[in-house]
Write a protein that binds this DNA or RNA. Structure first.
Lengths: 205, 205
DNA sequence: GTCTATAGCTGGATAGAC
DNA sequence: GTCTATCCAGCTATAGAC
């Protein structure tokens, strides 16, 4: 579906630059810093345009989330139907890009009902799809699903990965290397060494 | 040390009620809702008192964090020197109370330098102490520390626990029960069934 | 589509009365 | 200690000119 049902009004470039500006500000200074003025200013336009394009800041935030969510969903499909689904899932989950923004949106959701509902619905959909696609894979690897339920495997990978990112943001890295190695050892035991390229890994200092 | 070196000025009760009010508001509506006016109003006093007691909102947030951090550190000592250190650690980490506030403070830290620094320093101290106390314990249990580094055990427990709490906040609970069971199975394998009472567990719906 | 101008509100912070 | 009063900054949102 390359053509949305109702084409959003206005200049698509301006619209996108507002979304990009909002994302950048949220990552750099937190969601509270993403105001109509700061976003518009960074996008190089007047703040009244935020209302012209999105109506309210809530709508802008929602659109930002939906963009990222849709992209993640597509990447999930690719990862879990690839030759090495576990490696694909790990790389996807462990990917730095987007995580900072996601965490800001989660924080934002704490006091924005619409955003909370959107994230909640999406998370369930995402998790459900993960399970659908991964159950057969783990069965194929001969994993004992009573001892290692698919949900738990997914939760462990996601949880540890998210936690490492949070700690890194606070410059705490004690034991991170060993822990990543531990996870990757287990993945290797199931589906061999990583043969697929790590998807679009960001350079890290 | 029942007497602090420099007694904070003002009425200790008012001071505490301001801190309590700030904590409650942050948990309920997010850190952005904790303003001088909202905090003072909830504490039943005038908003100018926030400045009388704390000077700035930043100082209030810092004091809030330090209180919780100190309490956590004490609980860590108790847990890790108890008869069942792993169960103690798990209960401490997995405790619901305080986690919501912690997450708000983490979000807040994203754009408040002073708070970021405080959390960073505390986290390192906390992790270091965990390792000091837990290394001997795991050795005593005959754990292969090359395969399961102490840091990784701690990170896995903390990461999964935190992630479960975040998901619960979004009403996503798919696989949570099984995953908690999995972790507790492993703890049981090392140090037997839980014999110590779960510390101050909050009732959950 | 993009702008200026402005209304209306909320927040941080301070001065000074009691 | 606690309050009232007030200043100023910054924000959302709208009206209307170009």
């Amino acid at each position: 579906m390359p053509e949305p049902r109702t084409a959003p009004k206005g200049d698509p470039l301006t619209r996108q630059s507002l979304l990009d500006a909002a994302a950048a500000i949220m990552v750099e200074d937190g969601y509270a810093a993403a105001t109509t003025r700061s976003v518009a200013s960074r996008a190089g336009v007047n703040n009244a345009l935020v209302y012209y394009y999105f109506g309210t800041m809530d709508e802008l935030f929602l659109e930002l989330f939906r963009h990222g969510a849709e992209r993640s969903f597509e990447r999930l499909e690719v990862a879990l139907t690839s030759e090495q689904p576990l490696w694909g899932l790990w790389d996807l989950i462990h990917d730095f890009s987007g995580s900072a923004l996601t965490m800001e949106l989660i924080a934002l959701a704490n006091h924005r009902k619409a955003i909370r509902a959107e994230i909640s619905a999406y998370s369930k959909r995402f998790r459900t799809r993960q399970l659908e696609l991964l159950t057969g894979v783990l069965e194929g690897y001969g994993v004992n699903l009573d001892e290692w339920p698919v949900t738990s495997v997914v939760l462990l990978m996601a949880g540890i990965s998210r936690y490492l990112l949070i700690e890194e943001a606070f410059d705490v890295q004690i034991g991170h290397r060993e822990t990543v190695a531990l996870i990757e050892r287990h993945i290797t035991a199931l589906e061999g060494r990583r043969r697929v390229p790590r998807a679009a890994a960001k350079a890290r200092a």
